[in-house]
C-alpha cells in the first residue's frame, strides 16, 4: 500500500503547494499505517527532490524523460498510473491547480478511483472514506464519501499547513513504458509571465474593481502591490471591459484564490466575486458605498474614495516597512 503524491515542478523547483500536498499525504499515511511515495516528472535535481522528505515523503520516484518536458495529459496519466500500480497505491493526492485538474480526472478513470477535487481538510473518517470540500463556489461545504478501493484527491491550495518531519527520503529513478502513440498533443509555443508575483501563489493580493474608474488609474494599485510583494487581480467587469487581462479576473468564473490577505479596492462584492475570494484569511475593503456587500465579507474596511485613500495607504505601508528594518 502507499499514498502517492504527484508533485509538479517549475523550472526544476517545487513550491509551497507541493510541500502542502506531501504534508497532507503524510498525515493520511500515518492514519492508515502506510507510507508516502512521491512521483516527480521532469528535470529536478537530487537536492530539490530530497526536500520532499522534510514533509514526510519516504520514497521519491524521479522520472526524467525529454519527451515529458511538456505536459501531455495522456502521457502523464499513463506514467502516474504505472507508478501507482507499481507502488500499490490506494490514495492519490494531486494539487488542485491547472495540472492537477488536467491529469487527476484521467488517472482516476484509468485506476477506477473515485475523485474529489478541491479537498480542504484531512479525511473526517476513513471507513467510509470521507473528505470535505467547498461547493457552490465557496458558498457551502460538502462531505463526500469515496466508495471505490482506490481514491483520488486534489488538495485546495493554502488550505493545509506544512508539517515538517525527520527526512527519510530515498530517491529512485524510474523509466516508464511509453510509446509515440501516447503523445498526441504538441506544445508549439510558451509564453511566460516573468517578474510578477503569480496570483495563485501570492500570500497577498491587491484587486481593483469598477470603482477604480478606468485602466489609467491602476498605477497606485500596482505600487501598493509592489510594496507589499502582492499579486494583482481584478473583478469581472474590469476584465470584461478589457481594462485588465482576463488572467487577473478573480471570482466565480475567473480564478478562485485563497491568499492570507485580499484587498478589494472599488469592488462592490457581488456574490459571484465573493465566491472566488471568500477563502482569503483576511479581506480588506475600500469602497465609497457603505452599503456595498463587500463590507459583509470584509474583516477591515474604509468607507471612502479609493483614489484618495490609496496614496495614503501606500505611504503608511512604506513607513511601517521602514520602521521594521
Amino acid at each position: 500500500m502507499s499514498v502517492l503524491v504527484y508533485t509538479e515542478n517549475w523550472d526544476g523547483k517545487f513550491k509551497k503547494l507541493n510541500f502542502e500536498q506531501v504534508s497532507y499525504a503524510s498525515e493520511i499515511a500515518k492514519n492508515i499505517n502506510t507510507s508516502v511515495v512521491v512521483v516527480s516528472i521532469g528535470n529536478v535535481e537530487e537536492t530539490e527532490l530530497k526536500k520532499l522528505g522534510d514533509y514526510g515523503a519516504e520514497k521519491v520516484i524521479s522520472i526524467n524523460e525529454i519527451k515529458l518536458n511538456k505536459l501531455d495529459n495522456q502521457a502523464y496519466t499513463k506514467v502516474i498510473s504505472q507508478v501507482a500500480e507499481k507502488e500499490k497505491t490506494t490514495i492519490l493526492v494531486f494539487a488542485n491547480n491547472y495540472t492537477g485538474k488536467a491529469v487527476a480526472p484521467r488517472v482516476s478513470v484509468k485506476l477506477k478511483a473515485g475523485l474529489v477535487s478541491g479537498v480542504t481538510a484531512l479525511p473526517s473518517n476513513y471507513e467510509p472514506f470521507t473528505v470535505r470540500k467547498k461547493v457552490f463556489t465557496g458558498k457551502a461545504f460538502a462531505d463526500v464519501v469515496i466508495k471505490s478501493p482506490v481514491k483520488g484527491l486534489t488538495l485546495a491550495q493554502n488550505s493545509f499547513g506544512l508539517i515538517e518531519t525527520e527526512n527519510k527520503a530515498q530517491i529512485e529513478k524510474f523509466v516508464p513504458e511509453l510509446s509515440d502513440e501516447d503523445f498526441r498533443t504538441n506544445v508549439e509555443d510558451v509564453k511566460k509571465i516573468t517578474g510578477k508575483v503569480l496570483l495563485n501563489d501570492a500570500e497577498i493580493v491587491v484587486s481593483g474593481g469598477r470603482g477604480m474608474k478606468g485602466p489609467e488609474n491602476w498605477g497606485p494599485l500596482e505600487e501598493l502591490a509592489d510594496v507589499l510583494g502582492a499579486a494583482i487581480a481584478c473583478s469581472r467587469p474590469v476584465a470584461d471591459e478589457e481594462w485588465r487581462p482576463h488572467e487577473e479576473h478573480v471570482g466565480q468564473t475567473g480564478k478562485i484564490i485563497a491568499p492570507n490577505l485580499y484587498f478589494a479596492l472599488g469592488i462592490s462584492g457581488a456574490i459571484q466575486h465573493l465566491g472566488g475570494v471568500s477563502s482569503s484569511k483576511y479581506i480588506v475593503a475600500i469602497n465609497k458605498d457603505n452599503d456595498a456587500p463587500i463590507f459583509e465579507a470584509a474583516d477591515y474596511g474604509i468607507i471612502g474614495d479609493v483614489h484618495k485613500i490609496l496614496p495614503e495607504l501606500i505611504s503608511a505601508v512604506k513607513e511601517m516597512k521602514a520602521a521594521e528594518n
Binding site: G114, V135, F141, D143, V144, K147
Partner: peptide, 10 residues
C-alpha cells in the same frame, strides 16, 4: 464512485 453525504453553510 463518490457520494455527497452532507452539507454545511460556512
Amino acid at each position: 464512485l463518490t457520494e455527497f453525504v452532507s452539507y454545511e453553510l460556512p
